[in-house]
Nucleic acid binder design. Structure first.
Lengths: 185, 185
DNA sequence: AAGCTAACTTGACAGTGTCAAGATAAAGCA
DNA sequence: TGCTTTATCTTGACACTGTCAAGTTAGCTT
């Protein structure tokens, strides 16, 4: 959809909080109210853009998975790397989808891609769950760590300019995580 | 400052992306352009509100620290609990200060409270740094984990309604973290 | 040819941030 | 007392925003 393309481009140019129906319309070469026809309001357009964001998010993780060695720990590192790839390559989309603003959760596309992203995490974690512990415990542990790392790097970047630069590399954090999993399993 | 109070109340009522100079003015009982005098633009007001947010953030951590046992691991758990207290009690402020929007980083108040929050983290981590490892590595490890946990809980709350409810308690994640630190030290 | 529908456009409205200009009231000083 | 300066607003305007109602147009069906 051309309007979603325009929206993504707009976010990239102007920042994650500068989305505008009218500017999207102008960018796509249609009249100012055309977006209101396809998406009933700005939440609708935002949701479509967020769905696109989650799709790219999934692709980034899957791409790293395909190139990964088959060992479970390698695969876990791979999806984390994919997570960070997405945040690095699409910082505005990353902030946009995790901005806390309301999306239309009943939107089919949106629901599809958000649940797919969690499924990737779940399946990659599965072989690493220590006996007798709730899988969700490890999933949230991993997801919190990588999400927190990426999100802090983007939002507090004055003190720490740029994801990775000036920060400990994520692989060192991953090392600590693996130690914790070994100690539990 | 009454306008900042009004702004915080507005965020609480309407959500973290619904701040408006004119509505703040109305809430504070002044004319629509009065906020433009005190803060030269909406970024100025946002920065003042974010500074207030970081101050409350620091207070939440310090309050838990005062009630904590003196052991270093207890103190680390305490600031994490304070972190989560803040996110729970001021969800809109939490999302607002970590929204990724630009603040005026040269603002004195803002700089003071943001650096104070990082200093609390740094000092609490200090006794736990394993010999020969970069302190920042552990600081970012801890901060990423607790921030990721809190932020995911707030932004993806459809799948996981409410911080804590339906999620593994943070103390279990903290347990894994301590294991990792023991394995390193 | 007639009718129907999807995909728009046009025009209006209230709300927004921002700016320039004026008002008002207190404070400092002659 | 009167005059000037300064801080703190108010008023009014402008361009921009989302949203809605109404009109238009092109393509398909019958």
């Amino acid at each position: 959809m051309a309007l979603v393309d325009a929206g993504v481009a707009l976010l990239r140019e102007r920042g994650p909080d500068k989305l505008s129906l009218r500017e999207c319309a102008a960018k796509a070469g249609v009249s100012h109210a055309a977006p209101g026809y396809h998406f009933k309001n700005i939440t609708g357009l935002s949701t479509a853009i967020a769905a696109r964001g989650f799709a790219l998010f999934c692709e980034a993780m899957e791409k790293r998975l395909e190139a990964s060695a088959p060992a479970a720990t390698e695969r876990l590192s791979a999806i984390c790397q994919g997570y960070l790839d997405f945040a690095t390559e699409h910082p505005e989309l990353f902030l946009f989808i995790f901005s806390g603003q309301k999306f239309n959760e009943t939107d089919e596309d949106f629901a599809l891609h958000t649940s797919r992203s969690y499924a990737i995490l779940r399946e990659t974690c599965a072989p690493l769950i220590p006996e007798g512990t709730d899988p969700e415990e490890i999933e949230i542990l991993v997801w919190s760590l990588v999400h927190g790392y990426a999100h802090l790097a983007m939002t507090r970047k004055k003190e720490n300019p740029g994801l990775g630069r000036g920060w400990p590399d994520f692989s060192t954090l991953m090392g600590h995580l693996h130690k914790a999993l070994q100690a539990s399993g």
